[in-house]
Nucleic acid binder design. Structure first.
Lengths: 211, 211
DNA sequence: CCGACAATAATTGTCGGACAATCCTGCAAT
DNA sequence: ATTGCAGGATTGTCCGACAATTATTGTCGG
């Protein structure tokens, strides 16, 4: 398939990667002319790309003062995890009451594989993919879209933090336990497991950000 | 407060109102030059406004073919109501377990007042506001944002349907019952009441769209 | 009449430049 | 210390242009 994306999309994509990779200092202003020159495109194209990312909440626009990489406070992190708990709990309920678990099973397999690899970034990515796969168990694209927004927010936080693979092996085991409980139809236990995991993850992220 | 909004925002706002009011035929293309002339602004400004609304999913962009008012099928309506059930159920749980219910109480009061008035549009708006207030009981701005997206989607559907105030009196009574159950801390009954209402509303919307 | 195909028109995507409005900074004056 | 002002930087908006793409029309052979 030949590349059919627009210039705006490619610029937005490049900026998105830079944001998630932590190449752009949070809070630092992104100058339109500077970006236009470095990408070799017109300023109007850069403006469109910036607006796309602003709509995704990755960038924040201050009127007449430019855009900056969105900065999230501890309060935001708590919100993100609470919101994930709401959405993923709904997915787990569906999974514990008959929904097809094979997508989550596959996601866990790739996560387990990535956890054994030596790239914390791809492992984290696979981990987040597993969590969205839980929401996807509901088969509702709008809820998945909402989960994706939360995932992007979370990646924004993680970008400003040194990545370290912490006990990925243990994490995978916990997720496997969650899937087992869902297969057994034990809704209450599955929800408890999910909440335990998210609470621990939140603490871990907040601790790392605070450091 | 003097008006500090940008031209782009005002154009986007005007278009949004036109969409919700049903002034723009769904599926019909919106021509950039036509809009620029009718609003008396430059094409680039129109493009930015269109991109804002595209990011909100109110408009759909077909590459090199322009934007159209997003059309939603019956399947989308079912998704919207299922997603609302997930979010509002979480809010109702919070409400039934100690959250401050006064915002929802106020929202219901304005809805009751609007239901007595003679403008179906403001009554519908107040009704939707009440439902978002349920999600707001969680005190999580991200979940509220998600609920707002769903509300906008729903208003998009309603725009293509003749508005009729159907038994608004009865609706208000049902909502009052929901609040009472939450105050009593009867979580199960409150959730059941919410689900009953949403299922009925979904059926009503689908029936009207199909007609 | 119909389908294939070429010519034409309409529209979007991207570019470059321009300029007013706004914001920021430093400095002078009170 | 606060106010006020000049100057520069940056954004917001406008205009015009043109290539790329899509849609429409016209033509031709069957």
């Amino acid at each position: 398939m030949i590349d059919r994306s627009s210039t705006t999309d490619r610029v937005a994509g490049a900026l998105r990667e830079m944001i998630f990779a932590g190449d752009l200092a949070p809070g630092g202003p992104l100058r339109e002319v500077t970006l236009a020159e470095s990408f070799g495109v017109a300023r109007s194209t850069v403006r469109e790309a910036l607006q796309v990312l602003t709509a995704e909440k990755l960038l924040t626009r201050l009127p007449n003062r430019g855009v900056t990489v969105t900065e999230l406070a501890e309060h935001d992190i708590e919100e993100i995890f609470e919101a994930r708990l709401v959405l993923e709990s709904a997915g787990v309920r569906a999974g514990a009451t008959g929904a097809d678990l094979s997508p989550s099973t596959r996601a866990l397999a790739t996560y387990a594989e990535a956890a054994g690899g030596d790239s914390p970034l791809v492992a984290t990515h696979a981990h987040l993919e597993f969590h969205t796969s839980l929401v996807a168990l509901l088969g509702n694209s709008r809820l998945v879209a909402g989960a994706d927004v939360l995932t992007a927010d979370l990646r924004l936080v993680l970008a400003s933090v040194e990545r370290q693979r912490r006990n990925a092996r243990q994490q995978v085991a916990g997720h496997r336990r969650l899937l087992t409980l869902m297969r057994a139809g034990d809704e209450a236990a599955a929800l408890a497991e999910l909440e335990r995991h998210l609470v621990a993850a939140r603490a871990s992220v907040i601790e790392r950000v605070g450091a």
